[in-house]
């Protein structure tokens, strides 16, 4: 079971909830099961077979590099956040 935090503008699709608990061991399963709980939300998160280019899914606050294959440990927290780049020192 993972705890998905729903961004404010997507809460309308989840009966106003800010958090939804869903099963899944990969991000792909999480998104599929989230869509079952909040119909239509997957279409907002995905584009084709991947996460939308301007969006990122974080597992416990960290955005990994494996996309929808990223493993989700039991009890994990999933955040839906904008994809943002770093800068650079030196």
């Amino acid at each position: 079971m993972a705890r998905v935090f729903i961004p404010a503008t997507l809460r309308a699709r989840c009966d106003g909830r800010s958090e939804v608990e869903v099963e899944g061991t990969t991000l792909r399963q999480i998104v599929e099961n989230l869509d079952a709980a909040c119909p239509g939300i997957a279409a907002r998160i995905l584009e084709g077979d991947a996460v939308r280019p301007d969006l990122a899914l974080a597992v416990n606050g960290v955005v990994g590099a494996e996309g929808l294959l990223e493993r989700v440990p039991d009890g994990a927290e999933i955040q839906i956040m904008p994809a943002i780049a770093g800068g650079g020192a030196g």
């Binding site: 961004p7 404010a8 907002r44």
Partner: peptide
């Protein structure tokens, strides 16, 4: 204008490319 979380775009063109909102 594209709404970050939903991916939806506004009807009218605008100089605002993206709107982000985070709430807790």
């Amino acid at each position: 204008t594209r709404e970050m979380a939903t991916g939806e775009s506004a009807e009218e063109p605008s100089n605002v490319a993206m709107h982000f909102v985070t709430e807790m």
